[in-house]
Design a protein around this nucleic acid. Structure first.
Lengths: 235, 235
DNA sequence: ACCTGAACACCGTTCAAGT
DNA sequence: ACCTGAACACCGTTCAAGT
């Protein structure tokens, strides 16, 4: 720790809402939702609680802002590429969210909480819109747009949330194959009376790939949509 | 408030883990996850914190136990009926969970949190098993059991979680049609530049039925599964 | 306009002590 | 074995006061 000179270190160019949200994401990544405390923030930003409340309102709002920032970044990453098929675009958006949740496991719970709250935070519409545009491009009849898009979004959030499990347990260090083997063993030890099926698929757990399985689910939904609601004329 | 006689009221037949979990569910139903505090429990059960900690360990364990109890009850309700098709059984299990989350909106977040934690709480396997048995009955080839069942479970949890939104905002009193109209209006007022699709489906929001839409999503996944992995010989 | 820091009410949890 | 209740450390939030 360098002895600070009289220059007083400039404390990373003053405070701002963005700077606070940025620090919040870092704390969340490091220690989950429980790690985001106002005290921890004040230490990291070398201020008092008053300074933070001047910019942010309350802890919940900060949690929402952090969620928003990360989701927006995840959705912004795509596009760029050449104009793929709608299916590929949907897969890209879905994988973007999937990876964001893998990288920031607290996102899963946070999205669930944000979804189970009153009228639209800014995150849901963003996701809904980018999937919906591709559903339209798919040629799904207009009267089924809402149902089809909802199904896709629900699957994506459910699956991505579930998979945050592994991400969290694994952390950056734990060995993945070892972890899956342990999970597989645990399933094999379930009561055969109550869990015949789960025991039977225990070895499939050991060999599966999360992203592959996630995409397989997307394909189930896409196939269902295009089978039950085939394109009508020009979109 | 009746002046209590010397009989001392018997305080609802002593304390027990079940009694505590029961009270926890009541508090959760009444005020969400934030409403479940150890203090509130001690008042409702007329004890001190020590008594509760003697039976329960900590708050997290209590939250898990409450989740477990409600999900177990929801899954136990079905079966009874005549042997339906596997599709119908899956719909029944899914609707059971859907309704449980509608009745206990805190369940959505709680399930998400429980899922995004290390190796299997007791809830996930229970859900996984009851869906999986029907996937097998569907005649899906064994090597696809795990992927197919995971997709269904992910969709169910994602969709049910999302729908807890409405349940929570609506409460028992708010008028549903009015709420949907308001949501629809909010969507119509989004920036046309950024949200062309969401605006276009705003009126479908007004008229949709949650349970119907939920089941439509189940059918997408089921159709996808049986199309991409058709039955092979006798199951 | 932006920040400081003491203070408040509330929370989960522990533990010596009682029965 | 089961429960009581005071105590502890920690939390989110407020607010008078400073610059």
């Amino acid at each position: 720790m360098a002895t600070r000179t009289r220059q007083s270190q400039r404390r990373t160019e003053a405070l701002s809402r963005e700077r606070i949200v940025e620090a919040a994401v870092e704390l969340l990544d490091a220690a989950g939702a429980g790690g985001l405390t106002v005290r921890a923030l004040t230490e990291r930003l070398t201020t008092g609680p008053g300074a933070i409340y001047w910019h942010v309102g309350n802890r919940g709002e900060l949690l929402d802002a952090a969620t928003d920032a990360v989701v927006a970044a995840a959705l912004a990453t795509e596009s760029a590429e050449a104009p793929d098929t709608p299916q590929d675009e949907i897969r890209a958006v879905a994988l973007g969210l999937f990876d964001a949740i893998t990288e920031h496991p607290w996102l899963a719970t946070q999205l669930a909480m944000q979804l189970s709250r009153s009228p639209l935070g800014s995150v849901t519409p963003r996701i809904f819109e980018s999937i919906g545009q591709q559903v339209r491009a798919l040629g799904v009849p207009e009267r089924n747009w809402f149902t089809a898009t909802s199904a896709l979004v629900h699957y994506i959030l459910g699956a991505a949330g579930q998979n945050a499990a592994n991400a969290r347990v694994l952390g950056p260090d734990v060995d993945r194959a070892e972890f899956l083997a342990a999970a597989s063993r645990a399933w094999e030890e379930l009561d055969p009376e109550d869990y015949p099926f789960t025991r039977a698929v225990a070895d499939q757990v050991r060999e599966h790939d999360d992203r592959e399985q996630f995409l397989a689910g997307i394909d189930f939904v896409l196939t269902g949509i295009t089978t039950l609601h085939p394109p009508t004329g020009p979109q």
